[in-house]
Lab assay of single mutants.
Amino acid sequence: SDPSEDRAPESARVGNIPSSTSALKVPQLKVAESAQGPAAAHTTDTAGYNAMEESVSREKPELTASTERVNKRMSMVVSGLTPEEFMLVYKFARKHHITLTNLITEETTHVVMKTDAEFVCERTLKYFLGIAGGKWVVSYFWVTQSIKERKMLNEHDFEVRGDVVNGRNHQGPKRARESQDRKIFRGLEICCYGPFTNMPTDQLEWMVQLCGASVVKELSSFTLGTGVHPIVVVQPDAWTEDNGFHAIGQMCEAPVVTREWVLDSVALYQCQELDTYLIPQIPHSHY
């Protein structure tokens, strides 16, 4: 159930021909089969995070001529859309010479989310990475209204306002976009420790780096000194050995919190207090 199309920051360009055919990675995205229709094609874990990302398996898109002007500035990904909605975005992107990729990268400028009429969405990996990267996180209605009015409308009017977990109007995407000089995790050293489900560890690490944190791979690698705040992030329900995560405190002095601390902080683009996310640790033995 991992969102495989989000696994690594590679891009698939639509609308320009790469210098070599080997560089072309066409979105071959799968549809989750469901008797209840597209709305039930998501699996949500206890964290309220949509693990099964969206989309559609299609034939290789038709490439435009390399001489045609390509908008190098805009690059989009989509999240939560049905196959039909994805194809509408594809046509919109081609019309406006926008790069459409299946994986979010540093070059991505827009994340197009499936939302309700009030621009509230589910939480997906692309949603988190879009906010963390200060990108435009907009409703699919931006595409449909632009098509209806036959011009590209202003993104401000379609920015995602909230999500089904953290609140319907928290304005996290807007706050992140306007606060890239004040990253929420700066001054923190974060170790993403142990197993994680539904989200590859490297993507979680990239997320906290985008928010200004330094990533530490091992508990023994924390910088011990003033001005640096170490934090260990774990996902308790992913551990097979009972309560192993309670013993992390015996290996390092850092506070240990659940992954929800990261996800909530990123969604709201406000660093949350650790208290409600802390995992009790077995104290050091004193002999």
Rank of each mutant, 00 (worst) to 15 (best):
T240Q: 10
Q180V: 08
I282H: 12
S11T: 10
G133T: 03
Q171A: 02
Q209K: 10
Q203L: 13
P255E: 11
V31L: 09
Q145K: 13
L81Q: 08
D181G: 09
I17A: 08
E59R: 09
F158L: 00
M76A: 12
V89T: 09
N169G: 08
D157S: 08
V165Q: 03
Y287L: 08
K174L: 06
Y277G: 02
E178A: 14
Y277P: 03
S55T: 09
F119Y: 06
C192V: 08
P18T: 08
A12F: 12
E33S: 03
V233S: 05
M76R: 01
I131L: 04
H110S: 00
E155L: 08
M152K: 03
E33A: 08
K217I: 10
L81S: 07
V26Y: 04
T108S: 13
V256L: 15
A117F: 13
F119G: 12
K72Y: 06
C211K: 00
R7M: 10
P195F: 15
N50Q: 11
D45R: 10
R150T: 09
T108A: 05
S20R: 08
D264V: 02
A40G: 14
Q281F: 03
N50L: 12
M113G: 00
I131T: 03
G15F: 14
G167C: 02
P173S: 02
K91E: 13
H286K: 07
A65N: 11
H42Q: 14
K30P: 03
E107G: 05
V256T: 07
T67S: 14
W261G: 00
I282R: 11
V89Y: 02
F158H: 02
V137E: 00
H42V: 04
R123A: 01
R177L: 01
V234L: 14
M199V: 03
Y287M: 11
I190L: 12
A23G: 02
S19T: 07
P283W: 15
E218W: 15
L24C: 07
G227T: 10
S1Q: 11
A213R: 03
A132P: 00
E189Q: 09
K25H: 04
E85L: 03
E59Y: 04
K183M: 05
P9Y: 05
I282G: 14
Q281M: 04
G134S: 10
Q270W: 05
M207N: 03
D264K: 11
L153I: 04
T21Q: 09
V111T: 02
N16E: 07
C121T: 03
S55H: 10
A65G: 12
M113V: 04
N243V: 14
P61D: 06
D116L: 01
Q281R: 12
A247S: 14
R161P: 05
E189I: 13
D116A: 00
S139P: 01
T226R: 13
H284P: 09
S1F: 08
L278E: 15
Y269A: 08
A254W: 12
E122T: 13
I17D: 13
P27Q: 08
R161A: 05
V89P: 05
S4F: 11
N166K: 09
A8F: 11
P3W: 13
V137P: 01
S139V: 02
G225L: 15
I184Y: 01
C252R: 14
A8H: 05
